[in-house]
Design a protein around this nucleic acid. Structure first.
Length: 563
RNA sequence: GCCCUCGUAGCUCAGUGGAUAGAGCAGCCGCCUUCUAAGCGGCCGGUCGCAGGUUCGAUCCCUGCCGAGGGCGCCA
């Protein structure tokens, strides 16, 4: 996986990493530590937040990593770096400790936390967004359901996961294009046209046709001129009506996606890839490279050259191109638009097609590492512990719109965001629908609303947040805890973008809400008798609001000011 | 048969070479005269599928086995 080039806005973790790196180098210069021998691997400085708060705010295993190459006990190495940190790291750390078997445990000072809070508040909506000197230009193709019917719950996960990924990458400073690929010609579309034609004529829908209320709606909506064109002499009614209907259906799909808050930058038609010659040129490119041959009357791509199980057909023996042919052309078309990286979001059932596509990209001279497929696992929609039937005949819960009607956009986004994309999971409709504490999304939104309520209360009392955080924490461990959690946001975004996954973001949101609720319990914010303390606490609570707002915003989830 | 993914608390899922494995839900017990109880505190609950191996250290990496799902088309 290629790492984004983005660098974090000042995160506390990054500050700790730099401080340790600097101290380590200083210890080498002073002779306290030997340099890493040339034949050994120089370890990277890893900094994490220890699970146990008694281990401090930040911890590093650097000394243990260095023990072998330096041939010294890890505790001695840690002590050397700690000594350097204590003398030259300024006022960033309140304490620097060494713990067995060689951990370096750091505790941040109030001053460091307060400065970071000031920066966060100034950044405002930009807090938690990273910048990049050279943003990676990435194309994310997802959903890409053919316009023969409304989006189904089967399409839902791809739609949410794709958009969530895009949001995370954007927050990490990357240049993201959301792309939807659709088949606007061929058999499926003709079947749709035939179905519409049949209903329009009052005949039954053909065997391989499409059913459902939307088809009837389409039939009754056919404009007179389209119908005339379809039924004129020599016209192919199915094709004409199919073309018209697929555009209508596509707009329907677009409206559903709009409802989820997903908007695509590019809608790419398969036909255009053929019409503009992308497919034939790509096949020619493969042929020139010796990767194409004819057999059994068909044209094949020699995918086995790159380790595939078998070679793959590009043109069938009847001359028609396969879907794979269009994929090949599409890859060249995408790279011609200057993307550094292509991401495809597919269902696990497409896993078998990854190899041939990646191989074709490689055969055409593209770096296969820049062709990435993320698979999304199956979802079972569960109610009362049993799977909800999704059969069209049952009439319930077939479309994506049904799902949104049942649980709402916020809950749907949360549930899809909080699971790793590639694993199968059960979507509990009851829990997602619950307007109560059972529902984690409300739990987090409630924290936000609660803060807004405090802010309103404060305004009534004439209390304004402190203009600077300097001196506001004042050794208060409860306040420090909230500040640390707030300030983790940039790290959470960095990690999410690197992992190309969002479940760390929902976990962070839940944790932040929990820490805030604890603060609310332990510290009264608005106290007219003590305006100075109130102003300090109000500023901190407002910073928590900022972090919650930006986190939920990142997930596309609303932030109500009262509930 | 071959390939991919998964197997962690009763349920749904995180975690991932490090310091006592986490969250939500469910269950049980407490807390509203004071900024929103959609909240807070506590309890219960795990041989991290099984067996080997690598490592100072493995739930995480490697091998084998067992179980679940998916893929192996001139379908998409």
């Amino acid at each position: 996986m290629t790492q984004p080039t983005s660098h974090a806005a000042p995160s506390l973790r990054a500050a700790g990493r730099i401080a340790i790196e600097t101290a380590w180098q200083a210890a080498i210069r002073s002779g306290a530590l030997p340099p890493v021998p040339p034949d050994a691997v120089v370890p990277t400085v890893e900094v994490e937040h220890p699970a146990d708060p008694s281990h401090g705010d930040l911890a590093s295993n650097l000394a243990m990593k260095l023990a072998r190459p330096l041939r010294r006990p890890p505790l001695a190495i840690a002590e050397a770096i700690a000594t350097e940190l204590r003398t030259s790291a300024g006022d960033i750390f309140a304490s620097v400790e060494v713990a067995a078997p060689g951990f370096l445990n750091l505790r941040l000072s109030d001053a460091a936390l307060e400065r970071a809070l000031d920066v966060a508040r100034t950044a405002d909506a930009g807090f938690g967004r990273l910048t990049s000197d050279q943003p990676r230009k990435v194309d994310v193709e997802f959903v890409s359901a053919n316009p023969t019917g409304p989006l189904t719950v089967g399409n839902a996960r791809g739609a949410f996961v794709g958009d969530l990924l895009c949001r995370v990458l954007e927050a990490a400073g990357q240049d993201v294009t959301r792309e939807y690929y659709f088949n606007d010609s061929g058999a499926q579309i003709e079947h749709l046209g035939a179905s519409v034609a049949a209903l329009k004529r009052g005949e039954p829908v053909p065997e391989d046709g499409y059913h459902g209320a939307y088809v009837e709606q389409l039939a009754s909506d056919v404009p007179a001129d389209v119908w005339a064109a379809a039924t004129s002499d020599g016209a192919e009614a199915d094709k004409v009506l199919g073309a018209w209907a697929s555009v209508r259906v596509r707009h329907m799909i677009e409206a559903s996606l709009e409802r989820l808050g997903v908007r695509f930058d590019v809608w790419k038609s398969e036909a255009s890839l053929h019409d503009e010659g992308w497919v034939s040129r790509a096949v020619e490119r493969l042929r020139e490279g010796g990767h194409v041959y004819e057999a059994d009357g068909a044209t094949w791509f020699r995918s086995t050259t790159f380790g595939d199980d078998k070679d793959r057909v590009i043109h069938r023996s009847d001359g028609r191109p396969t879907y794979f042919a269009a994929d090949i052309g599409y890859v060249t078309e995408k790279f011609s638009r200057g993307f550094d990286h292509l991401i495809y979001i597919w269902g696990v059932d497409h896993h078998g097609t990854i190899a041939r596509n990646k191989n074709a990209a490689q055969a055409m001279g593209f770096d296969p590492d820049h062709y990435e497929v993320l698979l999304v696992g199956w979802v079972r929609f569960v109610m009362d512990g049993v799977e909800v039937s999704m059969s069209k005949r049952a009439g319930t819960f077939v479309t994506l719109d049904d799902l949104l009607d049942a649980v709402g956009v916020d809950a749907a986004r949360w549930f899809f965001a909080s699971r790793a994309a590639h694993v199968a999971f059960d979507f509990d409709i009851e829990q997602a629908r619950a307007q109560s504490a059972d529902n984690p999304v409300y739990y987090v939104q409630y924290a936000h609303a609660r803060i807004c309520s405090i802010l309103r209360k404060a305004a009534e009392a004439g209390i304004v947040p402190a203009s600077t955080f300097t001196g506001t924490l004042d050794g208060d461990t409860v306040a420090q805890g909230l500040a640390r959690e707030v300030l983790r946001l940039p790290e959470v975004v960095e990690d999410a973008a690197a992992a190309q996954a969002t479940h760390g973001v929902t976990a962070y949101a839940t944790g932040l809400a929990t820490v805030f609720h604890g603060y609310y319990r332990d510290r009264r914010v608005v106290d007219p008798a003590d305006p100075a303390t109130s102003a300090a606490r109000l500023a901190l609570v407002d910073a928590a609001r900022l972090a919650l707002r930006n986190t939920l915003g990142l997930l596309g989830i609303s932030t109500p000011e009262q509930m």
